[in-house]
Each structure stands twice: as C-alpha cells, then as structure tokens.
Design a protein around this nucleic acid. Sequence first.
DNA 1: ATGAAAGCGCTAACAT
DNA 2: ATGTTAGCGCTTTCAT
Lengths: 353, 353
Amino acid sequence: MARIRRNVTQDDLEITPTIKDVAERARVSIATVSRVLAGGDGVSGELAKRVRAAVRTLNYHPNRNARNLRAGKIRTVGVVIPNIENPFFTSVVRGIENALQAAGYTLLLGDADEDPVREQLYLSTLRAEGVAGIILAPVDDKPEGYEELLSTRVPLVAIDLSPGDLSVDLVTVANARGARAAVRHLINLGHTRIGLISGPLHFSTAQERRAGYEQELTAAGLPLGADLVQLGAFREAGGHAAMRALLDLPEPPTAVFVANNLMTLGAIKAIHERGLRIPDDVAIIGFDDMPWADSLQPPLTVVAQPTYELGATAARLLLARLREPERPIRRIVLETALVVRSSCGAKGPTTGP
Amino acid sequence: MARIRRNVTQDDLEITPTIKDVAERARVSIATVSRVLAGGDGVSGELAKRVRAAVRTLNYHPNRNARNLRAGKIRTVGVVIPNIENPFFTSVVRGIENALQAAGYTLLLGDADEDPVREQLYLSTLRAEGVAGIILAPVDDKPEGYEELLSTRVPLVAIDLSPGDLSVDLVTVANARGARAAVRHLINLGHTRIGLISGPLHFSTAQERRAGYEQELTAAGLPLGADLVQLGAFREAGGHAAMRALLDLPEPPTAVFVANNLMTLGAIKAIHERGLRIPDDVAIIGFDDMPWADSLQPPLTVVAQPTYELGATAARLLLARLREPERPIRRIVLETALVVRSSCGAKGPTTGP
DNA sequence: ATGAAAGCGCTAACAT
DNA sequence: ATGTTAGCGCTTTCAT
C-alpha cells in the first residue's frame, strides 16, 4: 500500500485522494489541511493557498464517514413515510428536504410501502446508520413498535399523527376544523343529507375528521344518520366500496365528504360507474389536495392540508431538538384551507348562514 | 421492561453502546464480538451466546460509519430524480428501493425539483458522501455538467434518457414503439386526423416519441400535418397550451396523442374548458400511466411505461457494475404496454387492419 | 502559525 | 477458539 509517488500520477486519478495526499502535495501537515477545510482560522495565507490548490488539483472530497466517526455526529436525518406514491407525502418530503438542506443536512428517505414491518426495518436501519434524528409519518396508529424507538431517545418528530398518542414532537393539521369547513361548505350549498367516508377509526386523524363532520352537522341542526357514515381503509379501494354503500342506501346522500385523498379517487370512480354526475347528482368534497385535483372532471373541491409547510415545520422542529435535546415536547397544529373548485357546484367560497 | 440491573447503568442507556461495551459485558474481546456479528464462524457456542445476550440487553447497533470507514466502502447508493411529485419517478424509486434493499444497500434520495442547479448540488453532495454509486434520472438532456460527473468514474446509471447521449449504463423504454402503439390504437378506431403534443425536441425521449408517431402515420398512409404537432414543456401547462392550439386549428384533430403524463393532464383540462367531450369530440391517449388515470373522467387510455421495472432494472445494473467496474456499458430498453380504458372510445385493445 | 499524536468504532491480519 | 493490534480518514488537543 506504500505508494511512492512524486507528483500526480495515474494512480491519483483512480484512487480517491485522502487528506494525507492533499497534505503531501501542499507540503504541510494533515492538521493544517484540516484547519483550512474547517474555515482556515489560524493558518497563514500562504499555506492556506497551497492547500486549496492541492484540494483542487486532486479533486479532493473529505470522507464523510471518517468525519462523522471522528466528530461523533452525523448531518443526516432519516425520513420514513408510509407511501411514496401518495402525493400528500411526497409534498411533505419536499418541504422537509428544503428546510434540511438549508441547514446543511442530508436526507435519507425510506418508503414503508404501507407495511409496518418494512417501516420497522427502515427505522432500525436508520438507527444503525446513526442518523442524527428521524422524521416519521407513521403507517399505523398503534404505539407498539414505536415505544421501543422512543426509548432509544433518538430525536424524533412525528408527522400527521402520533402513533398511539405517544409523547413526541408532532406536526399535524387541525383535522376537526378542516372537516367542519368541508361540511359547512356543503351545508351552505343547501345540502342536508351529507355522507361521510371515513378512514379506520383507530387513526386519530380519522376520528378527528369524523368529529368535525358531526359537530358541524349538529351545529346546523341537521340529524346524524349512522347509515350516512361509511368506513374504509385510507386507500382508493376503501373509498370506492364506501361510496357504493352510500349510493345503495334507500335514500342516498346528495353530498359526500371524503376524509382522505386516495379514498376520494375511489369514491369518484364509484359515482361515475353508476352513471351519476358530479355535482348534479352527488356533490363531493375531499380532504387533502392533489396536484391533479383540478384535472379531474369536474375539478375537485377539497380541504387542503399545507403539506409543504407540514414538512418544513417538522424539519425545523427536529433541528431545534437536535440543538437542544431537553426542550419540552411540542405539538404544532397547522390550519387547513378550503379550495373551492367545482365538484360541489359552488362558484367560489361560500359564506355561512 | 422492569429489568433490575446492576451492571447496565443509567449511562448505558443514554450513550449509544459500542462494540467495546458489548465485549466488556460479555467478558470477551472485541474481536470475538465482531466475529459473532459477522456470522459467528470460529466462535464457540458458549461465547457466541453471551455476546448475543449482551447485544440484546445493550440494544447494540454497529456504527455504520466506523464499519464503512474500515471496510473502505459504503453500502449506500444515491438516487437523484427531477421531480418527486411526478408519479412516474416515485414509482421508479420504489422499484430501485426494493431491489437495493434486497442487496443490503440503503438509498439516499435527492429531488432536483426540475432545477439543474439543485441537481448538480445533489450530485456533488452524494459524491462527498462517498456513495457507492448513483442512479440518475436527468433533469435535462444536455451533456454539460454530467461530463464532469462521468469523469470521476463514480458508478452511474441513467434512467429514462442519457443526457447528451453520454456513454453510461442506461435503462429506458422503447419510446418510438410505444408511440406507434398509441397512434395505431387511434388509427384502428378510425381516426385520420391525429394530433401530437410533444415535449421539447432536445429531449431524446420526445424525439423518439415523435418519430414513432410519424412512422405509424406514414405506415398507415396518413399525411403528416405540421400543424398537428404541438410542442410544450413536459409539464401540465405545456400540455394545456398545446391542446388549446390544436383546438384552435381551422380543422382540429379528432384524436390526440400526448407524449407525457403531466402534459396529458393539461390537455384534458383544455378540452373540458372548451366544453368538449372525451372521447366523443376528441379522443385522447397519454404516455405514462398514473395511479389515478382510471379515476379521471373518462378513465384515461395510456401507453404505460414499466416504471417499477425501470427502477428495479437500474438498481440491478448498478449493483452489477459495482461488482465488476470494467464491464461494458449497457443500455437496456424495456417495452411499454397499451392500457386501454375509455378516453379513446374503445372497449378493449384494438387489432390492426 | 504549525505539527505530532491520540483516538472515534470497527474489521482483519496476526498471534497465541 | 480467542485475543491483540494495526490501521481506515479525519478532527482536535497539546506541544512547539
């Protein structure tokens, strides 16, 4: 391994140069190189210049592993999402990414593919990898599996929901308030028979959205029909089946609020399959915006979550905890926004009674 | 969880345990621990057992940095895509991810957000990070910027297109053949005035798709009208503008082939805005499938790219090159598939004349 | 201002 | 079968 070389030989181009190579070439010690790389404090201009020249000719990049090993810390954070094909999460990731990048951190992304096992696998890989912290949008809302993670005291922030209501930093949206806005929009448009397609109720988000739906109905003096609430998995198929059930009712709803983006897609399909028109026969409003929501026919009215902000906020929360590990746990709740397009028949935002 | 312990102190829980801690606890040398971790060859069952017990109680995870540093290599590969919100790429990423995970590699994902500058930034971060290799779906089809990357000899495989036709491992699809299948479907349905909404022609993919369109028209003895071909950026807005231009023609096409998923969305919107119906007034067929393509109204007929396979293949190509750096450059071309839904008015796959 | 040297946690070659 | 030890590339005292 003792490579005796004079100048830049063929080898140098093949082998990744180390700090030692740079030091030799600049005729200084490796300590000096390190100092220049760190910012150059306490190094004479002369030497600094030689070092920088050597770095350039050798095309030297510090070995991040060695650096991290030595420094005992890592500028990488792990992000685990349930489903990379759900635009909600990709947009969240973009938000995280930008905030993190600005702070000099790199992002390691894992897609659990809706599988709790894969999620756990990623989580432990990430820990083995020694990431500085983890941002997690949980696949499931059960505390098991997450408890152990928490006990390791890895800086962790949850997005969307805190599994089993565990005590972690959390960024979420005002689900109930968003749901109320959706239902209110429908009521303002004159609907009195409003259906709900909800996600599984062990998800706190599903619960909150249903609560909002019920609150708004009650506030308007409208009755709550148990038959008007259909549950399904937070997937397209779930929305499809739920909508069919609603349409099969002796007296179907004239409007439906769907509590998740993918389910909304399924619901729309079910409506079209029946040869019904939106919004004339059934008005529909979704939760979560999608990039193509206004390419749907008709363009979809939704309660939009501030996805990008959700991600950026989570990243900032993590960064803050990294800086100050003992700071109190925080829960940040972001507001939703009603985006009126035409699937409810309204021309613009409606105003209350 | 109520483990009454003397040996494991408070500190042990706070500090991440190292191989040394495990060794002490198991009363063996660190070498023995390392051996057990590596598979346990040449270690007596007795000691191996003690080591495993210690690993478990301490919840020990090997430090990946140290491992990589020592091994001189890294089991991480970087992936850079142009746009994480485009379902084409997310699906590709899923394919990459699964193939890589099976081989014990972790994935570092960068989203260039359609910005060549950000893409370069990611590329150099990745190199500094010392990734084993890079999988790149280029933002642009110009060789500048990529040439330098290539010269560093990082194992690299391109997806979708090879920028500026640089000589790298590449996985792509049979664009021309896919385009021909699309146009043939339209011709079989009786259309003779078929428009094309194409991407910028400096993209090889756009060129190939246009070539396929022209070939098929010619093969069917149909004339090529220059006015029937509209160019636009590979985005929704591009498709929207192009479709409007087509519709503004004195004699608009009765069917349109759109060469990219996002553009198709824009095109559909333009058609609806004009109050036209699909497929009665205008038939439309897209390139690239989308998860929600059959939630569109009407469900969209497309030429689907095997996105997941595209990713998986790219990963395998990279893995192969990692194993054998000097192997000849490969280009793998995957076939597309016609997915008939109802936006062209067909009930099922059409057969040729 | 500069350099020598001690590790960070791990693996593998070398002893025993 | 087990332990001892020499680094991997880097940062950071501690000398000079």
